[in-house]
Amino acid sequence: MNLHALRLFHIIAVTGSVTRASHVLNISQPAITAQIKKFEKELGMTLLTSRGRGIALTAEGEEFARYAERLFAVEQQMEQYVRDYNDGGRGSVRLAATYLPAHFLLPGWIARFKKQHEQVEMMITTTNSSEAMVQLLQVEVDAAIYGGVPESHLDSVQSEELFQDELWFVVAPGHRFANQQVTLAEMMKEPFVMREKGSSTRERLLSLCRTYSVPAPSISLQFNGLNEAIKAVMAGYGANFVSSLVVREQVRRGELCRVNVEGIQLLNSIAVCTRTGEPLPPPTRRFIELIRQYPYVHQ
């Protein structure tokens, strides 16, 4: 079917005359009339008939016009969808996030983003740092929000740091090291409660021991969730090495206490990682633009 001729017919049906259609389309009346005649011949159907000095739709033309109206209404919806998508207002955002940003940063970012882009679907996978990078490189997600030490992935991953937070050693208030200053060697003799292998903070702790030639601590309890590990320490067992974002409120309330380890002051990088050289889908690009504007600010 000749869609150009169908569009001409649709404009005639909407405006009610060839003259008005000619003005709308900026096409001469004879040219429009000739194309409609050719279109009717192709269809084997008379769409327009003369009425006085003007034209009218035949019964078949009226029914055909209803189909044309639906078709071009869908076309307008499609065009609007494309505009919204390119503006970041439609589509989906696929993210992998490590525990820290997933639980302490993403909820606020997503709430702010959804107020502006309600139709965008958010798909978030919370995982450890190693798996987040795997999902990014295997194109399972469009971006990874990462909390930890930036990893080297040759040229395949582009990392943009949003801000940094401190890493703290924490124990229960009744622990003998609570609010005390100790050496790293003394601290590493304590049993630790940590997340599973692959956790960036756990790997950071082990790297710290290697750097200072101190024996690695015993990981006496291991949890897949950081919240469970923190609660075990609050209950009075062992120590934890953790982002200040996670435990700042518990320390303020006196439910946990910091341990000051001599000569150790480490920072944790909060970063957004994308695949190098690949354009982001517009909704994901808009989301990253938003989190650049509203990074976490320490209180």
Rank of each mutant, 00 (worst) to 15 (best):
F9N: 02
G198H: 01
S200W: 05
Q250D: 14
P30C: 04
R70I: 13
M188R: 01
V82N: 11
Q180C: 11
D87M: 13
V297W: 07
V297A: 12
I12C: 03
G236H: 03
E228S: 14
K115T: 15
G198K: 04
N179A: 14
S207A: 15
L47H: 01
L226A: 12
I288P: 00
L267E: 10
P107Q: 05
M188I: 09
R83E: 12
N268A: 06
T127V: 04
Q250S: 11
I230R: 03
T276I: 07
Q293Y: 05
F177D: 07
I55Q: 05
A143T: 04
N268H: 08
L266D: 06
V272Y: 00
R112W: 13
E63G: 12
E196M: 08
G52S: 08
E249S: 04
A5P: 03
F177G: 00
A229P: 00
I230S: 00
Q222Y: 09
L205P: 01
E79S: 12
T126C: 10
Q29H: 11
L137H: 08
E40K: 07
V233N: 01
S218Q: 13
E160K: 07
M45N: 05
S244W: 08
G54F: 11
G148D: 04
V297T: 15
R83G: 05
L100P: 07
V82H: 15
P107K: 08
L267Q: 14
L267W: 08
S156D: 12
Q77N: 14
E161G: 08
E69H: 06
Q35W: 10
V139W: 15
M122Q: 10
I32S: 02
T201W: 02
V134L: 10
M133Y: 09
P215N: 11
T58I: 09
Q250M: 13
F177I: 04
E166I: 11
P107Y: 02
A13F: 06
H4M: 15
E42V: 10
T201V: 13
Q138K: 06
